[in-house]
Design a protein around this nucleic acid. Structure first.
Lengths: 182, 182
DNA sequence: CTTCCAAGAAGGATCGTTCGTTTTCCTGAG
DNA sequence: CTCAGGAAAACGAACGATCCTTCTTGGAAG
């Protein structure tokens, strides 16, 4: 469900004293609310140029409230980065199971046009954030491991697609010109 | 020579009063010294996680001295980023004029293995910095323009290579498997 | 009444930058 | 060649701003 790991279950029972005031669902919703705000801020200004004050304002909460759900800015960054990587992986996984399999040229076109060689000035919602995460991954060991997993999964899905294409008996070569579109 | 533009020439004559104490060459050298230090710091920690104190210490100078040669951190970032882009462009331009022309597979392999799909944990000197610059380019208009120029030049050089390869009468198709190396 | 979420002011640290001072070194006179 | 004169280079302490985080207080919900 959530890429950043299983949510810590509330250990209280409704029959105990000291019942928490809000449900787990509410807590989850608050986390989501904060992450969405952080997502927007990070996409706009990158990780280290957005202040906690920015995130807090975007979320429409207070500092104290935000720090009830995340114990540091670092934790929010990791959560958002994991979501970004998870999103990429999920989208690719979904797309890689289409029937009939897309041609190798389509696969490569998807890869280089969507995230990599797109113009810096015409980013989708994901592109600036993906770059930020990727850049951060060169410094943060946790993110580096995540990035490696994603890369491995991507490679596997791509080769899987190629194999399925090959089984249809068609050409497994890509016209070079498709790789440098005007 | 220097990607960030022509160095402002010393307007004093040796016959005037107020002759500067150091030569233009010395000034140039100092700028270079600061930029090298900044390069190292930025490659290590990214733009916004390296403080001016880091750069100043790495350069072995004082704050006042550094601010004699660059008027802000932003200016240093732009200078380094321009150097990075210039380096990429230069390397590709050089490589694209090899004789005989490299095969399309080689070209693509160079592109995806060198900067793009390399493992985040095994970066060359340039990779983390390239990511940082690229990420910054999604926010900084000056860098965005620079990035677009670089991209356009790259595309042109790639298509040029493909055309030269085609003129040798050989196959202009790339085996798909080359694009997802194990 | 008890419990804890939410708020927001405040703390301590660090940031980029400036500025008054010292040092360096070229110049021109003796 | 020597030496004062002076301007630029270099220094580094200090400044205001901003950063992330904590902590006290208020109030809603069971």
């Amino acid at each position: 469900m959530h890429p950043w790991g299983a949510f810590v279950k509330n250990e209280y029972s409704v029959y105990d004293l000291g019942v928490p005031k809000v449900s787990d669902a509410h807590r989850e919703q608050r986390r989501e609310q904060i992450l969405i705000a952080a997502w927007k801020c990070f996409a706009r200004n990158g990780f280290h140029s957005t202040s906690m004050a920015d995130v807090i304002a975007e979320a429409g909460l207070s500092a104290g409230a935000v720090y009830l759900y995340f114990k540091s800015k670092e934790e929010i960054i990791l959560a958002v980065a994991s979501q970004v990587f998870g999103g990429i992986s999920g989208r690719m996984a979904e797309w890689s199971q289409h029937e009939p399999p897309p041609s190798p040229a389509e696969v490569v076109g998807f890869l280089i046009q969507q995230p990599v060689l797109a113009r810096a000035q015409a980013p989708g919602d994901l592109f600036p954030l993906l770059l930020a995460v990727w850049s951060e991954a060169t410094r943060n060991p946790v993110l580096a491991d995540l990035a490696d997993e994603i890369m491995a999964a991507l490679r596997q899905q791509i080769t899987g697609l190629f194999e399925r294409w090959e089984r249809t008996g068609r050409d497994l070569r890509i016209p070079a010109r498709d790789l440098a579109p005007v």
